Amino acid sequence: MSQITIPNTEFYTWKNYRCAYEHYPTEAQDSTPLLLIHPIGVGLSRRFWHRFCQAWYQSGHNNPIYNPDLLGCGESEMPHIAYTPADWAAQLQHFLQTVIQKPVTLVVQGALLPVALETVRLQTQPNLIQKLVLASPPAIALVTQPTGMRQQKLTWNLLDSPLGTAFYFYARRPQFLSSFSTRQLFASSDRVDSEWLDLLVKGAANPASRYAVFSFLAGFWRQNYRDAIAAIAQPTLVVVGDRASSISKDKQDTPDRRLADYLKCLPQAKGVKISGRNVLPYESTTEFVATLAAFEP
């Protein structure tokens, strides 16, 4: 199959910050757009979704796709601030209202789930989020048991220091990125390929990208979102890898248990387990596309 051309980068302004995104337009006027939320980590940005976008269109689907860079990532501006899920949600809400301007299916990867929850919380009438897809969501304990604001600020201050900067420069080395990806993200080390490592190395080249990573590591996303999850009225698809792992101390957090936990909390949800570990749209792209397509006909 032929490669799908990656669209040119477009920009919009939010709070005087220049924010980047890609738009894959289609002629299908009645198809619900997909709005993708990329994960946060060393070198990660909207490029995480390129493999998925290729597979989505090569499989014959015609939904328009909006693929933004969150502030602090990719080609968006990278101010020296501590980012919270509420900050990124406000950015996405502005993007929804001013750029997309129609209801979307919101697809969120991993522990950026709180950003999706905060974005849903910001919705008024009309509600611009029609459905949600949670790809590789974290163990539910991580988004229902807060770490505490004091601990989060202490961790941020430690990272936002010469010591933290030295750690970031160490962590963006290809050897570290390969080892971490094999230990924490992928079910198969064979999938930690040159394309993945190139993505991370290039994405981490700007040292200012460390502030988004430090915000994630500080745990500003570790809040009690149980009520926010229970309040989601939209149909929701939860996709978990059959070898999903977690930083949670809950030893009972198996893939089946994780699915059950989310289905118990979400009012209108469907759960699917596919092969892979913690980055399903990248590692198990074909299966993930087929699973999403069944949910988004």
Rank of each mutant, 00 (worst) to 15 (best):
Q3T: 07
I4H: 09
P7L: 02
Y17N: 13
P25C: 03
Q29A: 13
D30Q: 13
D30L: 02
H38D: 12
I40L: 14
R51S: 13
W56Q: 04
H61L: 12
I65H: 09
Y66G: 11
P68S: 05
D69A: 05
G72V: 02
E77L: 00
M78Q: 15
Y83I: 13
A86M: 08
A90F: 00
Q91V: 06
F95T: 10
Q97T: 06
T98R: 08
V104E: 10
T105I: 12
V107I: 15
Q109H: 14
G110Q: 08
T119E: 06
G148L: 03
K153A: 10
K153Q: 15
W156K: 05
G164K: 03
F167K: 09
F169P: 00
F176E: 07
S179A: 12
T182N: 10
T182G: 02
Q184C: 11
F186E: 05
S194P: 01
S194G: 02
E195C: 00
K202L: 13
A205P: 03
G219E: 08
W221K: 00
R226K: 14
I229L: 15
A231W: 02
A233H: 10
A244R: 01
S246T: 15
S246Q: 06
S248E: 09
S248V: 02
K251E: 14
R258C: 13
G276A: 06
V279Y: 10
E283L: 02
E287L: 06
A290W: 00
